[in-house]
């Protein structure tokens, strides 16, 4: 009952907390051309753990913004306008905060839970692995 596979089906969180699960889900998303959503999700987690006193932190915030939000890619399309405006403004004013991407991450995660995660659990990639 506590096998990795049993955990993967429990929640998106438990899938992403497992190395093999996250890897397989990433392979699936690459094929579906939406791997950026997962990379963004992990980037948000990584960013939250960064030290605000580290001079790398504002540069990482800017890199996340440029790579996923400013470019009208899939992550940008999934986010609410207000969420994007808030992040843009935070970066412009250099108001760097550990939780500045939290709302954006939640929006992407909700869509991932509703769509990609369920598609993954019925995909041939998953079924072959099982």
């Amino acid at each position: 009952p506590d096998s990795p596979l049993a955990r993967w089906t429990k929640s998106l969180h438990s899938l992403l907390g497992d190395q093999d699960g996250a890897h397989l889900f990433r392979t699936f998303l690459e094929r579906e051309k939406c791997v950026d959503t997962l990379d963004f999700w992990f980037a948000c987690n990584g960013f939250r753990q960064m030290d605000l006193k580290d001079n790398k932190t504002p540069r990482v915030a800017k890199a996340i913004y440029k790579r996923y939000i400013e470019n009208y890619g899939i992550v940008s399309k999934q986010l609410k306008l207000a969420t994007k405006a808030y992040i843009k403004d935070s970066i412009k004013r250099q108001h760097i905060d550990s939780v500045m991407f939290d709302q954006a991450q939640t929006e992407v995660q909700t869509l991932m839970e509703e769509n990609a995660y369920h598609m993954f659990l019925t995909s041939d990639i998953y079924l072959e692995y099982v």
């Binding site: 190395q19 992990f42 980037a43 990584g46 960013f47 540069r59 890199a63 996340i64």
Partner: peptide, 20 residues
């Protein structure tokens, strides 16, 4: 000095699950 891409990659990797 690290490029923005390297910093981003490092940030993503730091959050990925590690082998148990």
């Amino acid at each position: 000095i690290d490029s923005e891409d390297d910093l981003l990659q490092e940030c993503i990797s730091s959050a990925m699950p590690k082998k148990k």
